[in-house]
Design a protein around this nucleic acid. Structure first.
Length: 486
DNA sequence: ATGTAC
């Protein structure tokens, strides 16, 4: 039997790409890492495995805590982690959702080809950069009063539809149709709402970006056809989250857990794993507030997409409908959701925490929109600004192996601090432009350095593992053309 | 990720 050791933690290989930390001592379940040997070697370099093992101490944790091939260290719970806890006798953990609630990504298609963009890259990237608010702090597409923010939190994409920012078709191409009915805006603090209302329709900073890409490879012709993807096609990827509103909501509830559930907190190996017991008032309030923040993030991405359509209309002098700028799908990367899954032959309602992980439901799951019901949902996995991204489809094995989930990106390889020592933003931009014809425009050079292609794991390897495991199957690959970021 | 700090 192959084993690998990292510090105190020993993993045994279950089979190709599947590693297990056996249940012992205080653990309530085993933990699993889904990775090739090369990726496991990288995952083992920081606190990811320790955090994954800690996650198995959460009350009601079902089957096993799971680390995806792009996993790395996070706040309390690994980024690239999936933990499903029982809704009856388990718990819900803000740290296992993430600070950036419903950080996620959407892909918008066009009927333009790479040739149509030749010579216009600079004009396009400049126009996008001007039109789309980005960077730290305030300023959004919409200046929201309190009624606006309440509407967004309560109704998500339905608010955007009512206000003329979205079409019915946009809603039909979002996870949960862009709307969590369980949202309870009254459980989002005034402070969080005040932070959010000046940031409605804004990209933010860090790893968030908007990227114009071209499709370079198709791996499954039949699925690509259903998704409406073909070689040389231009697509747009929008990656951002719930800005200060989600961050404040996470902070608020971590503090309240510390005050109101000391007992549970002290039973956990890491304070950052703080969780509210299922059935408690606080668990209900956090779930309602988190769902409201999820709605906010969907509207955020929608307003950015709206502006992107306008920019394309100006640059190409055609209507967006004529350019068929339709949404492929919008997927969440940082959420918890009540879902029913099979646990030891029994159907259980679970809080599925996906933190830096994407839902990857296969054909047949009732949650899928009609367009994808018989093919599986699109899964969008952004790589770095120099590497390109992937579109997958939910794999047949995901329900058995990962509560219907797969990876969410390339996954960081080094800290932001280390990245800034290794790279200089302007140099990164020049190299991308001269060597790869990728046009990057950013508010801050430091952000470009922090996000340099070299700070990420190999997205091809991450996706290869997902495909081999059958949790998310490769459909298409894209390569960057223009990128704007904070 | 984040008005990068209780």
């Amino acid at each position: 039997m192959t084993t690998r050791e990292f510090g105190d933690i020993e993993l045994r290989q279950v089979r190709e790409n599947v590693w297990e930390i056996p249940e012992s001592d205080e653990m309530r379940a085993p933990a699993r890492v889904l990775a090739s040997e090369a990726l496991l070697e990288q995952i083992g370099q920081d606190k990811t495995l320790e955090q994954l093992q800690n996650a198995t101490h959460l009350p009601g944790i079902s089957k096993y805590a799971i680390c995806m091939p792009d996993g790395h260290q996070g706040y309390g719970f690994p980024v690239g982690g999936v933990g499903a806890t029982d809704c009856e006798d388990g718990c819900i953990s803000p740290g296992a959702v993430g600070y950036d609630i419903n950080c996620g990504v959407r892909m918008m298609k066009t009927n333009l080809t790479y040739e149509d963009l030749q010579g216009k890259e600079e004009e396009l990237v400049d126009a996008l950069f001007r039109a789309i608010p980005s960077g730290l702090g305030g300023g959004g597409v919409v200046k929201g009063d309190m009624d606006t923010i309440e509407g967004i939190l309560e109704r998500g994409m339905q608010w955007a539809l009512d206000e003329g920012w979205a079409t019915e078709d946009d809603l039909a191409h979002c996870e949960d149709e862009g709307f969590r009915d369980d949202a309870k805006p009254e459980y989002v603090s005034k402070k969080a709402k005040d932070r959010g209302r000046n940031q409605i329709g804004s990209l933010g900073s860090g790893n968030h970006f908007l990227e114009v890409q071209r499709v370079t490879d198709i791996y499954r012709d039949d699925v690509a056809e259903k998704f409406g993807l073909e070689e040389d096609q231009i697509v747009v990827l929008i990656h951002c989250g719930s800005r200060g509103l989600g961050h404040q909501t996470c902070t608020d509830y971590l503090r309240r857990i510390e005050k109101e559930h000391q007992d549970l907190l002290e039973s956990l190996p890491d304070r950052e794993l703080a969780a509210a017991p299922a059935g408690s008032k606080l668990a209900e309030e956090y779930y309602g507030a988190m769902c409201a923040a999820i709605n906010f993030a969907w509207v955020n991405r929608q307003l950015i997409m709206y502006r992107t359509r306008q920019v394309f209309e100006n640059v190409f002098e055609r209507d967006w409908e004529d350019m068929e700028m339709d949404l492929l799908y919008d997927v969440a990367h940082n959420i918890a959701k009540k879902e029913v899954h099979d646990v030891d032959g029994e159907e259980r309602e679970l809080y599925v925490h996906r933190k830096g992980a994407t839902r990857a439901f296969p054909a047949g799951r009732p949650e899928l929109p009609p367009a994808y019901a018989d093919v599986g949902q699109p899964v969008i996995i952004p790589g770095s600004m120099g590497a390109g991204s992937y579109v997958l489809r939910g794999g047949e094995n995901s329900l058995d192996l990962t509560f219907g989930s797969t990876a969410h990106g390339a996954g960081r390889l080094m800290s932001r601090t280390k990245a800034k020592q290794e790279y200089w933003g302007e140099t990164v931009q020049e190299e991308l432009r001269e060597q790869e014809k990728i046009y990057v425009k950013a508010q801050s050079g430091a952000t470009v350095a922090e996000e340099a292609p070299g700070v990420y794991k190999d997205v091809d390897e991450v996706v290869r593992v997902s495909d081999e495991l059958g949790i998310g199957d490769k459909v298409a690959r894209t390569f960057p053309v223009c990128n704007i970021k904070g």
